[in-house]
Design a binder for these strands. Structure first.
Lengths: 200, 200
DNA sequence: CGTTAAAATGACCAGTCGGTCAAGTTAAGT
DNA sequence: ACTTAACTTGACCGACTGGTCATTTTAACG
């Protein structure tokens, strides 16, 4: 959870976390247009309380996104020490995809893309993912012309593919992760038509 | 363009098409929350005129989406007669991706997913894509365990991947189309963990 | 021309939004 | 128990939304 900047009174701290949790749920269900009033009701507080913790809706979004990215970063760090680098990368993509499936917050990410806090955590996660990719490449698990940035960009793709197919089983996205991961493997790789993008 | 239901007066027909074009641009730029007032201003008409052609905003969205899908269907039909089936499938994905890159209307698709007109055109496009995929599979260009529905779902993935990377060159998405298409090829294919979804 | 039905207009409506703030409530230190 | 600063509350504000409709404009036809 994001750290409250100063020492908070006990009720304030409790409400702050309730609001954050409610916001995460509400944004995931209603999209970026979820209203602050609804978030407040869900958290069991008045609207004014929400604005006393987060000055603007934008600030609330930033806090939710920062939480989300920080959780992913923990996973990436843990897997950086796993024995099989290829399996570690695939597991990271599996965990990240599953989080994304449970709560789609990508629209929040683009909404808060310019925020300094979010940028910092995102860069840090990017570095961890790049480390996973470098190890996997060195281990021969993925093709040599694929970079950490490539994989970072591809994280959400498998879930996105399945997002607008209402009747689908919850884990159908694993099928598309497998297809895309096959595209990352060395076997049968064809030359890529464009160079990998730099990060920042 | 979508056909006007009855015979329209000349100014009405002209304004109808202006509104449709303005709506497509405005939605692509502002997202689904683009206001009808803005669309009207962009089309050079009053707000009431928009609502005289499309009773609700929803109806306007449906018309834009239907246009978009119909254009894609023309491309798929044309490529159904191309000599090299593997190249034809790749070209369809290239054209579809490029359209998607120019105007992102996917959020409109999900907004109008339940509409009968949209459903009909979408099913029809799905059939054409499936035909392309079947020919490509028969020609050995793609793996045997990938279906038309798989490819239909994957259409927007390459562009989506790149969407939140602001500084990127416009055609970077071709890199991810190549990676994903490599995942569709027979060489180095690993077994897929989930069965392909049916298309209701 | 003149006539008329079709179409365009924009002020207007009710509802919702993000955000404010004076007044009331409460946790914490003594 | 008393005090006080921290915190919560919800009525309120201006801006904006999708949608309506009485009025005015205009294309089409004789």
């Amino acid at each position: 959870m994001t750290s409250p900047a100063r020492r908070l009174r006990s009720d304030a701290l409790r409400n702050r976390e309730r609001v954050l949790a409610a916001a995460e749920d509400e944004f995931a269900e209603q999209g970026i247009d979820a209203s602050v009033s609804d978030i407040a009701r869900r958290a069991g507080v008045a609207k004014g309380t929400v604005f006393s913790h987060f000055a603007t809706k934008e600030e609330l979004i930033v806090a939710v996104v920062a939480n989300h990215l920080a959780e992913l970063k923990e996973v990436a760090e843990r897997l950086g020490k796993a024995p099989d680098p290829g399996a570690a990368l695939l597991e990271f993509l599996t965990v990240a995809g599953d989080r994304r499936r449970q709560r789609d917050l990508t629209f929040l990410m683009s909404a808060s893309a310019d925020d300094a806090t979010v940028t910092e955590i995102r860069n840090s996660l990017h570095a961890d993912v790049s480390a996973l990719v470098d190890r996997a490449r060195a281990g021969g698990a993925i093709r040599h012309d694929v970079t950490g940035t490539d994989v970072f960009l591809l994280i959400c793709a498998p879930v996105h593919v399945v997002e607008n197919l209402p009747g689908a089983p919850a884990d159908l996205w694993l099928r598309y992760l497998a297809i895309i991961f096959d595209g990352l493997r060395p076997a049968g790789a064809s030359p890529l038509p464009r160079p990998a993008p730099d990060w920042t």
